[in-house]
Amino acid sequence: MSSAPVSEAVQAFAQLTRNRKSKVKSSSREWQYLSAMLQDHQALFEQSQLSQNISRQLKVTLKNSSTSVTTILSLGLGSLQVTREQTRRLKQLTILLSLRDTLRQVSGKQIGIYAQDPTFTRTDETFLNSLGISILRTPSGSDLGEAAAIICPSTLIYSPFLTLEAYEQLLFNAATPVQFFVGDDFNALLKKWPKHSAERAQVERVMKSGLSRYRRRAVDGEGFWKEQDGTFPMAVYGWVDGGERRREKAKI
C-alpha cells in the first residue's frame, strides 16, 4: 500500500490545524482590540454631559412609572467589526452598558441584557457574551425574531439607528406593548426627510399610531459623540397609561 495518500491526509490535517490556530489568534487580537477601545469610550462617556443627561432622563421616566425594568433588549446594534462604523457602534455599546449600570443603581438588582442583530459575527457574539450580554437571533433587521419572546412590561428596548420597518414591528406588532425604549428621537427624525417623501410619511405614521401613548424626553450633551461618528438625536420614551394621560390633559 502506498504511503502517499496517508502523507497527503496528514499534510491536509496539519494545514487545517494551522488555519484554525490562525483564526483563533486573529479572533483573540480582535477581541483585545475591541476591549481596549470599549474601555476608552467608557472612560470618555463617564465624563460627558450626555452620560448625565441620559441617566437623569431615564431615572425620571422610571420614577413616573409603576413598572420596573428587569431586562434590557438591544436591537440594531450592528456588527462591531465593520471598520467604517466601528467607533459609532462601540459608543452605542458603551451607552447600552451604562443603561444597565443605571438600572442596577435604581433597582438594586441584577439586570438581564440581550442583543439581537442579523449582522452579528461569531466574534461579535463571543465578545458580547463576555460582557454578560445574551445573543438572540432574527432572520432580518425588520423582523422581531427571538426578541419577540423577551419583550414584556419590564423590558427596556435600546434601539438607536433602528430601521423604520423594525420600529413598526416593535410598536405595532409586539404581543406585549413596549413600556420603555431609548432610541431615535422621532421629532428630529421627522425633520430629516423632505415633505411628501415615503420615509416622512412612514415616520408620521409611527408617531401618530405608535408613539401617541409615550412621553418623549430628548437626550443630548457634549463630550462624547463626534461629527465623524454620524450620530442622530436620541430620546427616552416611557409608556403613559390612560389615567396619567387624562391628568396631563386636565392640566392643559
Rank of each mutant, 00 (worst) to 15 (best):
L80W: 02
I54C: 00
Q32Y: 07
E46K: 06
Y114T: 08
R122N: 03
L103V: 13
K25D: 14
R88G: 06
S27W: 03
I72N: 07
L97R: 06
A43M: 00
M37N: 10
Q105R: 09
G78M: 02
Q81S: 11
L97G: 08
R100P: 09
Q110N: 15
L80S: 03
A115W: 02
V24S: 12
T67H: 00
S107C: 09
G112D: 15
G108E: 05
S98D: 06
Q39C: 07
Q39Y: 02
K23F: 09
L96G: 00
K63A: 11
Q92R: 00
L77Q: 00
K109Q: 15
Q81D: 09
D117S: 02
T119I: 03
L34G: 01
G78E: 02
T94Y: 08
L99R: 03
T67M: 08
L96W: 01
K23T: 13
T87N: 07
T123M: 04
Q116A: 04
R84D: 14
F45R: 10
V69I: 13
A115V: 06
T71P: 08
S48Q: 03
R104T: 15
Q110L: 10
V82Y: 08
L58W: 05
G78P: 01
Y114N: 10
I54L: 04
D40T: 06
Q47T: 07
Q81L: 08
Q116H: 01
N64F: 08
L50Q: 04
A43H: 01
